[in-house]
Write a protein that binds this DNA or RNA. Sequence first.
DNA 1: ACGTGTGAACCGATTCACAGCA
DNA 2: TGCTGTGAATCGGTTCACACGT
Lengths: 212, 212
Amino acid sequence: MPKSKKSIPQETARRLSLYLRSLKRLRAGGVNLASSEDVTKFLNVSPTQLRKDLSYFGEFGKRGVGYDVSSLVKNIEKILGTDTVWGIAIAGVGKLGSALLGYPGFFEFNLKISTAFDSDPAKVGKIIAGIKIEDISRLKQVIREKNIKIAVLSVPGEAAQETAEKLAQCGVRAILNFAPVNLVLPKDIFVSNVDMATELESLVYKLKRKDY
Amino acid sequence: MPKSKKSIPQETARRLSLYLRSLKRLRAGGVNLASSEDVTKFLNVSPTQLRKDLSYFGEFGKRGVGYDVSSLVKNIEKILGTDTVWGIAIAGVGKLGSALLGYPGFFEFNLKISTAFDSDPAKVGKIIAGIKIEDISRLKQVIREKNIKIAVLSVPGEAAQETAEKLAQCGVRAILNFAPVNLVLPKDIFVSNVDMATELESLVYKLKRKDY
DNA sequence: ACGTGTGAACCGATTCACAGCA
DNA sequence: TGCTGTGAATCGGTTCACACGT
């Protein structure tokens, strides 16, 4: 990582994740050499953008030739940190939480659902998609024990802030928030919001002004 | 809408949606006058940003005073287009799709799940959360009939592109895509992606470089 | 005096244009 | 020649600073 201190755009990480997906697809198709154009062809990202993004971290291609697919996969995984397995916790096993528990995509990215919590006694102890639901009171213990740093928050909006605080106190450092609430947390905790309502309202807005 | 042609930032619509949520909360709490600071206090957005965002569409406040909460709510709903009801379709009623069917937040934003589709004969005809699952072959008919313009795509990745194309052909103009696939569609179709894997990978990346 | 509305300054990110290397 | 890597130019969006209206 030569240029560690060069102020890397926020979006770069997100795009790296897309490149990775595209590269894996190419690799699965037997391609082992690809140009920046090949990688971005179906991605809504320009080849230049890919090259610039990679340039923040080093030189991974061969001029006049392109990129070795598998080695670029490995390099991006290393940059993103997904070259090792991360355990994640799911807080809130309602409809959405259960769906997430069964989501097959996680392990593809070296993410492993290590545990799930709910406050509803009717759910605690049940096993969904191979994961035993723990009582929320065991949060601290389980999270420490399994050294979990990332949580998915899928509790109802009213409980989101409180649960997020608990997670942070137990050592969780990053939260993927599905609740339609802006979480207020110490700023060394990273939060990503998945806000369906906002997305849909933005779509409605775009539909209304068909211009652009 | 005085300044219709002033090139409005993409993010403005998303933020308007957040303002709306905040304003509704204030209104529910009996507040009927609020400053830009009051509205953005728990939002991770600066008061200046709110004022600038609103300024693209007109003048809604009173200088030296603030904003009338209910009238600003109405104005933003009008800007976003959520002052009328929009029917939406859900394509793909797997775990995630079912969870979305039961999501209570939709109607809060004047979005109404009008119909749901699946290709699995075992599911077709069933009623989930009050919505009858239609066979995918009835797509065109139902979408035309109910004049649906917005769809939520929650089919497996392999089927996403094909289903999206069908939706577009049937008159759907905006798609909220949950599949980890970049949809390639005519550019008058609006697509928003909810990409869990990308979000999680970005979080891992941030965790790795704890600086910033 | 106070909070909005907004042109101008600033800042970050993308795109351009081309140098560098296989 | 072909495609990468990157400083420089450009673009868009946010923030600043203050004029304006109540």
